[in-house]
Simulated assay, not measured.
Amino acid sequence: MAIGPGPVLAYARHVERVLGAARGFELRVAAEIVTAEERGAYPVSVLDGYDLVRQHALAAGATDEQIELAYRASRSQLGSGQAPVAVPRGIAALLEELRGRVRVALVTNAPATGLDGVLDALGLGGGFHEVHASAGKPAGLRELAAAWLAEGRVLSIGDIWVNDLEPVHALGGDTALVGSPPDGATPTFAGQNLPALYPDIRRWASSAPDHDLPSSHPATSNETEPTR
């Protein structure tokens, strides 16, 4: 849901700090993020920016404990000048529109700490009927989606096929991929960015059963969440 490299760069900055001697770590990660954005995709072996930082941190000799410490420190700065975030144009209006038609859920692997404050700062506070932090995707999303599909339709929206969409697709739900589909991915909809998917999302929601709070769920995912 949030976009921009700020949180990932903050993560890299704190990894550099816990490593001590690994000067230039943040700059190297930043350069690779720019390259990935220019190409429109990360290397096949990398899920996203957070995964890129983690892989480089492990290669530099960081322990799992050091990586977790760096990640937690970066999350405490989320939404600040040290880890700025933004949202796609028109997302607040879209959420308001969808909330009157379908149940809207935010499912993220990020912890709940500071999440409400960031959503409020981005103008998205109250934009979701459900917020599931520390969701443990992909397995956690599969569990949620199974319950939702027992009630109605599900459209899962996200930028990582294996974490955000494949669990729902495997259960027979619909999917909307932000970005280019990787090999083997078969999303219901795909667009280079989230605004490009708005027409498809609206059409999907418009066919929901007509009652006060439909059981159909567009399960939207945070675009800058960690895939740890």
Rank of each mutant, 00 (worst) to 15 (best):
V162I: 13
V168L: 04
V118H: 04
D183R: 09
L106V: 01
L141G: 06
E143V: 15
R153A: 12
E225Q: 15
N193F: 05
G136T: 02
H132T: 14
A112T: 15
H211T: 12
P187H: 09
R142P: 07
P187W: 00
V102M: 02
P209D: 08
A219D: 00
G126P: 07
P111T: 00
V104I: 12
A208P: 10
A185P: 02
L106W: 01
D210F: 07
V154S: 07
D183E: 12
P199I: 05
R101D: 01
G184M: 02
G140K: 05
P195L: 03
G172F: 00
P209L: 06
R153K: 11
H217Q: 11
G117A: 00
R202C: 04
L194M: 06
I157C: 12
E130Q: 05
G184L: 03
N222M: 08
P209G: 09
S180M: 07
Y198D: 09
Y198A: 14
T113E: 01
H217Y: 09
I157N: 11
T175C: 02
H129D: 15
P226E: 02
L124H: 11
N109T: 08
E130H: 14
G179R: 03
H211K: 09
S207M: 15
D120I: 06
A150N: 15
A150H: 15
D120A: 10
T186P: 10
G100C: 04
T108I: 12
A196W: 01
Y198G: 04
